[in-house]
Design a protein around this nucleic acid. Structure first.
Lengths: 242, 242
DNA sequence: CGTATATAGTTGTCTATACCAATTTATCGG
DNA sequence: CCGATAAATTGGTATAGACAACTATATACG
């Protein structure tokens, strides 16, 4: 069942096995999984190792423990609060839509003062992207993105073709995205905005300004989007924190 | 230093002591704390116990570990990510504005089908509140709230006078707010909305629909708000989660 | 001088065991 | 049959030790 020779730690293999058994319905939502002592026998590891696996899954809200009672599979709906930072592509896929881009502009330029300030730049150049974002072949948003060149020196239009920018960062570079701040406001479309979105002047739109941060708080992206309000709602899941 | 007789677990006492030493500058941001073996000697506990304390602090982003190098104090947490669920009052105070209400309607009623469905009700009644929300004496939003009566049987208009509803729940009851889901969309004001907000028909507005949950996933509030877009931006801080 | 190599120190993983605290289940007495 | 009590079961805390994987530093070698 488990591979003791594998470079993967035992507790990780146990996690994967438990997740698989939850997925496949062997352990059901709300019901108890076998006790730690029991699992340590079936997996032939010490109870502490089982506990490490379970602790990780508790932290990820897949399981929860009750002293004296057992360990239970968390309810399905809380498993994945979709509150994470996502790119447009990821957002659309999560909504069951197929994303697609039309790249209008891709160039290096001297950033304007606002961008410079927001991205904490001195003399560095930025990539400037202007794109129309489609979902299921219908225009959804106009998006402008500013990215410091020095963070991704080898970036070009081709590299942004198939994959999303966020995916690119996390798979092709050593950097990792940490957090983002977004401000969302309502507005009405002017002609230049209405035309590419196939809506009328004066129609309601959502303006979303996003500032993305890498680890250590380094800003890596300024993103200004205009969404059609008839097709798009912004969804936000939040925890209460005292 | 540590109290072995205390009902508080040793790892917890160690956490508190380490936090204190970070606060007081004995361990500085970005610098390493003593090694796990060293700490286990000074605290006179096993290394695994020290590890449990440190693991908790790593999870809370107070410390971070680097294999082969040591354990370090995380950078001062960048500006309290204001991503928590907040009531209107809390939101305005956070923005440096003074909130104020005009209560138009407060009554018990049979919920309509949508509300019933969203709040997962059977035959229970709900409180219905309609309020105009002011910030610095200027109208900011129109808000309608539906709250199941059986969750807060002793609620009345007086109790909502001084404090915010969220504050009331957390101080006067045993219940605790857990999370909320909000959908945000843009729209244009019709006359009935424009008039109380002192804006013009056709002006842009933000429609925010919030569903609040107590612990255990019990929905406790359906809140529908219409914000003036010229005065209000929705701010969202998010973490990236793989 | 520069480059391998050993070495010591660090966190990461894992074992086997022990006792505690909370809960459930079985047992006994009326 | 009911209720109190005891026993069994569960997760929570803690120990002492071992080896692996990784990093930085000191050392020896060419």
């Amino acid at each position: 069942m488990l591979n003791k020779e594998s470079p993967l730690p035992m507790y990780y293999q146990i996690e994967e096995d438990l997740k698989r058994k939850i997925e496949s319905g062997i352990y059901n939502y709300g019901e108890a999984i076998p006790s730690e002592r029991e699992l340590s026998e079936t997996y032939e590891v010490s109870r502490m190792t089982v506990r490490q696996a379970i602790s990780n899954m508790v932290r990820n809200r897949i399981l929860y423990r009750e002293k004296g009672r057992g360990t239970f599979v968390a309810e399905e709906k809380f498993e994945q609060p979709l509150q994470g930072v996502t790119s447009f592509s990821e957002d659309m896929k999560r909504r069951g839509l197929t994303p697609h881009n039309e790249l209008l502009i891709f160039e290096k330029q001297e950033p304007d003062e606002t961008t410079k300030d927001i991205l904490q730049l001195k003399d560095e150049e930025v990539y400037y992207l202007k794109r129309i974002r489609y979902a299921d072949e219908e225009p959804m948003a106009i998006e402008e993105t500013f990215i410091p060149v020095h963070l991704f020196p080898e970036l070009d239009a081709d590299r942004l073709e198939g994959v999303s920018f966020y995916e690119y960062i996390e798979t092709k570079t050593e950097l990792s995205i940490e957090r983002a701040r977004q401000t969302i406001e309502a507005g009405t479309a002017v002609f230049e905005e209405a035309e590419p979105l196939s809506i009328e002047e004066g129609d309601a739109i959502l303006r979303i300004e996003r500032l993305g941060y890498l680890s250590a708080g380094v800003p890596f992206e300024r993103n200004t989007s205009i969404y059609r309000s008839d097709r798009y709602k912004f969804i936000s899941d939040m925890q209460r924190e005292k």
